[in-house]
Design a protein around this nucleic acid. Structure first.
Lengths: 206, 206
DNA sequence: TGTATCCCATACGGTGTTGTATCGTGAGGG
DNA sequence: CCCTCACGATACAACACCGTATGGGATACA
């Protein structure tokens, strides 16, 4: 007799998550009813309420998934730094490289952020998830400085906030005027200068 | 026997518009049902459907009202240019000066823009309203260059697009990090340089 | 003041969505 | 092979909201 979760359960949640991703992309967060998401997953609402508490729960699960993907991608980029000629540019370009997935995620997360602004409880939860993601980014930044043979002179958490702001700000503008501004342009132009500014060589020159 | 609209009608629409403004501010566009808006206005849905076709109609009415207020404010600023010492800075500061109203409008219009992205018909209507507003801004810019004794060397419509983008982009960032960035800072810093770049004196120096 | 017209309130039918309570099925340990 | 629990399906009750059709009170003009 089953004591823990069965093998079927993770498959069910995976199907719900994928259906949610697609539905959110097409209709947005508000526009996606739980019912339609379940329908798309080939399940019923019973399955949903067995796996998630609310639609917001579903979003946060997607949030974590997406964050993990981004972190993995950047981690790999940092790990491959040695072989590149212009290492920083490589990382940044990879950071700005936007597939359709990233664009849709921006739209969704923006909508959800606006929602959170009007709902303090949700905002607190969102801030907590943001914080956890930023921890990963701090880890990444530390690794990056290490690879570059430099030691940061500022708080890495604030630096993580800044890079995130630049990334999302650029994204917003390039979505508004795709022909005028490439998504990675601002980051590639300004962030390298910044790196020099906020760090010093580990072993100062002779 | 009344042949045209009666005196009561404009009062009713005004009450609806004000109630909508407040409700949208508190709950956002999606979160505001027509019913709640009418309730707040002390009216019933009958009044609404007699004055507007859809909730989107209501938004666009607010859009026009807000646009008109902004244009009026800037027009006044341009008209008072002569007496100021640093004319351009005056206009820009006034443009960036954000009261709470402006902040709420940003949240609302952002949410509505996301909505429009997913609904092409709405997007077309929004683009049309944007266009009309931009016409006013072009008029303003023309007046500004005139006052400055300069002649623009670029298309004023594209310049209007740019200033709008800078304005909204700054707003977004200053909302995300209020302590890090004043709303008018970017505009005040960069736009004056730009003005020189895209215009020439009407009467070149001897 | 009468009265034609306007305009908002009311009432109605309908749809979509939510959360829960209950049931049946099948997975998986004994 | 069988028994038991997990888990998703189903059924249910309630709610919120929408759009319309209609009636009556308010309004403006003679």
């Amino acid at each position: 007799m089953p004591k823990g979760p069965t093998k079927r359960r993770p498959q069910t949640t995976a199907r719900l998550l994928e259906a949610a991703q697609e539905t959110f992309a097409e209709r947005g967060f508000y526009g996606s009813s739980i019912e339609v998401i379940c329908e798309r997953a080939g399940l019923t609402r019973g399955a949903f309420y067995s796996n998630f508490r609310t639609k917001e729960d579903l979003f946060f699960a997607l949030f974590d998934l997406h964050g993990q993907r981004v972190v993995d991608r950047l981690t790999q980029a940092v790990d491959e730094l040695d072989t590149a000629e212009d290492p920083l540019r490589t990382v940044l370009t990879r950071m700005g490289a936007l597939d359709e997935t990233e664009r849709r995620w921006y739209l969704l997360s923006t909508e959800f952020t606006l929602h959170a602004i009007r709902h303090p409880d949700t905002a607190r939860t969102l801030a907590e998830h943001d914080r956890r993601l930023r921890e990963e980014i701090v880890r990444l930044l530390a690794g990056l400085f290490d690879r570059l043979g430099r030691r940061p002179t500022v708080d890495l958490d604030s630096l993580a906030r800044l890079t995130t702001a630049v990334h999302e700000g650029s994204l917003a503008q390039s979505l508004v005027e795709p022909d005028q501004l490439a998504p990675e342009e601002l980051a590639v132009t300004y962030l390298p200068m910044l790196v020099d500014l906020v760090s010093e060589p580990v072993a100062p020159g002779p």
